[in-house]
Simulated scan of single mutants.
Amino acid sequence: MRERFDLAASQQGFELDAEQQRVADKLAELGTALPKRFRRPSGVYLHGAVGRGKSFLMNAFFAGAPVPGKLRVHFHDFFNQLHRTIAQHRSSANAVDAAFAELLGGLQLLCFDEFHVHDPGDARLVIKLLHAVHTRRIALVATSNYRPADLLPNPLFHELFRPAIEFIEAHWDVVELPDGPDYRRTGRRSGSGFASGTWSRSPPAGFESPTAAERTALPVNGRTLRASAVRDGLVWFDFEDLCATATSAQDYLAVAERFSTWVITGVPQLTDRDAETQQRFANLVDVLCDKDATLHVVAEHDIARTLTEGRDTDRTASRLALLEST
């Protein structure tokens, strides 16, 4: 299985660096052990700096993993599905366990991209999820920008998540991909999907600013979001309507299922905003990058100045570096 990683890198025009090779070796060992029925390994928690190729390595591993029951999903997306499934089973005696049975049934391998926890409300649910995965003997591979000990970093709630941290460290191999080049910043832009988007002070050529008549109440998850315009596969939002109000990653996921092109105007310097607003913007970028939606941002400042000292700045800046700044 090890050669699959080198082949995948070659197909994308690069070679694995020494640290990436070390991680590939570890994942290849896991892949070899996966088919073993009675001694299936628990998995790997892969963490490290942004843009180092964690998602690439996990995706290469997932593609070659020799088991039929496998799922690769962004952590935001999985939690969106989990909340929806719990709601569908709300009449059950234990809706959470019923949701786990539905989502995890038949799996031998579960791959989470961008595993992170900021919401204290989700902390106990994540703990239950990790126990459910382990009890079902599902191998887990997760990528994260956080060491296990740094998950749910808010000091007011961090102790809530300590049981999960200890569980991860006890049952999964914790592997670090050390600091090195951010390949999103140094690589070539693909010119498609998320990487075909722009960051500028005015709407990109060919995009007419919305008129007042185009303002739309967009139904999302049982309520409405105010969109500046909806045009076929394009949705246009003002930052204040999308990130400065009580929206969630689940809302962004629902809208991303309907629209492949987004325009966000009026993005301010985020250090002027509260932590919740900063986190919503980071979540939005995460969702759109994972869904490979085209994003055009109209901002007051360049990316670096917009994100200075913001939450999850490194991860967000790395993704936004894929956009063409004009």
Results as ranks from 00 to 15, higher is better:
234 L>E: 12
248 S>H: 09
211 T>Q: 05
232 D>F: 09
227 A>E: 02
214 E>I: 07
205 A>L: 05
212 A>L: 03
202 S>I: 09
228 S>T: 08
209 S>T: 07
211 T>N: 00
218 L>W: 07
205 A>C: 01
249 A>S: 15
233 G>L: 15
249 A>G: 11
203 P>M: 01
212 A>N: 03
237 F>C: 12
237 F>Q: 09
252 Y>W: 13
228 S>D: 08
204 P>R: 10
213 A>P: 03
207 F>H: 11
246 A>N: 10
249 A>W: 08
233 G>D: 08
249 A>C: 11
242 L>E: 03
229 A>Q: 04
241 D>E: 10
247 T>K: 04
239 F>A: 12
236 W>Q: 14
232 D>R: 13
253 L>W: 07
219 P>I: 10
234 L>Y: 13
218 L>Y: 00
211 T>I: 00
244 A>G: 01
231 R>M: 00
247 T>Q: 13
205 A>H: 13
209 S>M: 05
230 V>A: 04
238 D>C: 10
231 R>N: 01
232 D>A: 10
235 V>P: 00
236 W>D: 15
232 D>Q: 13
239 F>E: 04
205 A>R: 12
208 E>I: 14
205 A>T: 13
203 P>I: 10
203 P>Q: 05
247 T>L: 06
248 S>M: 11
250 Q>A: 15
210 P>M: 00
237 F>D: 10
244 A>T: 01
216 T>N: 06
215 R>S: 05
202 S>F: 03
246 A>R: 09
236 W>E: 11
247 T>F: 04
236 W>T: 15
237 F>N: 12
221 N>S: 06
220 V>I: 14
246 A>G: 08
225 L>Y: 02
234 L>F: 05
223 R>H: 11
254 A>M: 03
218 L>M: 10
225 L>I: 08
